[in-house]
Amino acid sequence: MVIRLPELGLSLKPPVFRVQPLLPLYFHLPIPSMSTTGITIGILALQGAVAEHQRMLQTLKFSGRGKIHVVQVRMPDDLAICDALIIPGGESTTIALLAKLSGLLEPLREFVKTKVVWGTCAGAILLSQSVSNAKQGGQELLGGISVRIARNGWGSQVESFEAPLEVTGLRNSSVPYTGIFIRAPVILSLRASPGEPPVEVISRVPPELLPQAVMEDGPDQDVVALRQGRHLLTTFHPELTNDNRFHEYFVQECVIPSIKS
């Protein structure tokens, strides 16, 4: 019950007793749950654009669902308390090596199997099933999304670009979202095997922006954002814009539904 005094712009909330006082009070401390403690989103903080993701998440407001807690994940203990994880842009070889050295590789692989993960750029590479243009000797991947991906698909930094994108499902989706592509990977093919959740493409780049040296034939190399099951993948950097619609989409469409179910 809320008593509103609109003239004064005030609303008074009478105190609510959640529990019957049958036991001593300390037995009735609130049990942590999503509704009272909010959502904990981890950002893999081994290397890369961590602060940028954190800043974007902190701009989000979700009434009634509590606060979003952001945790920088550097050790397995940090990961254990997360409801969802963002793997930021950075250098995927560096992030993979540091994950291995920090004992995070296996915990991350387990996390990907049960919880929501969003990979941006380097994070997208780590979530993919296989990678080409990898360093000599290959690199560790986490898997989780049934795509094949090529690192630095557009070439060196002088080919990095910005492009307006149409993204399905974004708030105000008629307003294009600025995709910032920095030495970005290119998705070579989508291949969900039977039994895996289907891949849902949510954004493609206009064909004239595709890399000039086409890496191999296929209809899906213009895909730059997709979902599969719980996960979200973008080959560009929503964290580098001041437009928080992608982070809002992630929390609203990926994280919250997964916690409810």
Partner: peptide
Amino acid sequence: VKSGLAQMLKGG
């Protein structure tokens, strides 16, 4: 994209 690449190198 210029300052963005530097942001990708952070923590490195």
